[in-house]
Write a protein that binds this DNA or RNA. Structure first.
Lengths: 241, 241
DNA sequence: ACAAAAGTGTTTTAGCTACACCCATGA
DNA sequence: TCATGGGTGTAGCTAAAACACTTTTGT
């Protein structure tokens, strides 16, 4: 055996996006337990080592199921993080020791994007604390998790540009065009005129007008729409460039 | 230690693209040596296990240097392949044994795209045989290398769409607009009218007209152009969608 | 003269932008 | 009646598509 080659553990980490009622992107963080550390600083991205007979995609799906109780989530691998120093912090090494019962010196991780409707019930079998955090209020996290989140933002933007339909994974089943607009603006950071956005969106055949309209708003009530994935797939528009 | 977690080797594999004089995309394959196997079936993607103190990007750069002698190549990580069965073929296990002097049962790999001018001199310090293969004539390869190549094609297309300038990595310093058109067509598989393509390309300020024109062609000689990366960066056009 | 491709110009089409206008609702 | 946002219509601009036309060179 050649000792200079890496022989390591591999994990997956998931950046789970949600869109809250104040029009902010949020991500899911979980609590980790390390002795003698203030609770505040112990948030992390949900993740896990992968099993010896497991593919990374399967591991990511398992992490999402253990995290939320949801079986089929929209997931996308986006980058492998393998800086040799990414797991060299003493607290991180200590935590890996208690979590995985082993002395681990190096670990590489494969990062995934995941999308979740923020009103979906989170039913975690693994974590006692799972919380949404607005993207601009994410605390300092262990390992390179802050860097992973930063890069995930660029990635979700690209993803939406290549496949507009993923945006509906973050919205409720029925939504107003204003909600869609706010979400689009939060992700793409492009400024589009909302009137033109409205016109464009409502011209798409896969955006279905519903009977229902908003209640108790102090202005003209907006109509609800829904997304029809079948019609979208048939004509898979490139969309809103 | 929990034996159910993966503890594995990690490699990088590079899909190196070139564009030949018959307007075909090519990729670089190397020869591997396995006892009792016909030479023909022993091509593979260039790659290597990563070292214990090495990041994956560094490993990919090292592989490219050992492969070509070129220090700075345009490289892009695109996917981690980790199917538990990807290294279960007996020949592959045997080869890993002789190459890395170790019994390896599982290995995950991080795949990279690389771009190379096909007329660049290949000066490999590691491989005795390094050859270009037209993309539609790639033989059956070990591991999941054929699958990696298939996915790399989708990836290079996306890459060109998000950053048009990478196309010039595959062309000589001076090129005709026809050459650029042929390459663009080979990658994107979109059909654009060459006249309009010509007009559009020559309108870009980062495409610089040269004095020189083609010699000895049996029709009107085309002008040579060159790409100016500085001007491109200043105005980084989104480009040809 | 002809073939073949370079290179330019012109017309049409489609999509985006800006903005005006009317509608519905609560306060 | 006013403020706020929903929703529609239209005119103008610009980029892209279609295609005709001229130029250059070798045979």
């Amino acid at each position: 055996m050649n000792p200079e080659f890496i022989h390591t553990y591999v994990s997956v980490d998931c950046v789970v996006f949600g869109f809250d009622y104040e029009n902010r992107l949020n991500i899911l963080l979980v609590q980790r337990h390390v002795e003698n550390m203030p609770v505040d600083s112990q948030k992390k991205l949900p993740g896990s080592l992968i099993f010896s007979d497991e593919d990374v995609d399967d591991a990511a799906n398992r992490v999402m199921y253990e995290l939320t109780g949801i079986k089929k989530m929209v997931l996308k691998q986006f980058k492998c993080f393998a800086d040799p120093a990414r797991a060299s912090n003493q607290n991180d090494i200590k935590w890996m020791g208690t979590e995985y019962k082993h002395n681990i010196d190096r670990i590489i991780t494969v990062a995934y994007l995941a999308l979740c409707k923020i009103d979906h019930k989170i039913n975690s079998s693994k974590y006692d604390t799972v919380d949404w955090h607005p993207i601009d209020k994410v605390p300092q996290l262990p390992f390179d998790h802050n860097q992973i989140i930063n890069e995930s933002l660029i990635e979700i933007r690209k993803w939406m540009e290549t496949d507009f339909s993923i945006i509906f994974e973050l919205l409720p089943k029925k939504f107003t065009i204003r909600m869609l607009y706010q979400l689009y603006s939060a992700v793409s950071e492009k400024k589009i005129d909302i009137k033109n956005f409205h016109k464009k969106i409502s011209s798409f055949n896969y955006i279905i007008q519903m009977e229902e309209i908003e209640q108790n708003v102090s202005h003209r009530a907006a109509r609800y729409y829904r997304f029809d994935p079948k019609i979208y797939k048939k004509t898979h528009n490139k969309l809103i460039k």
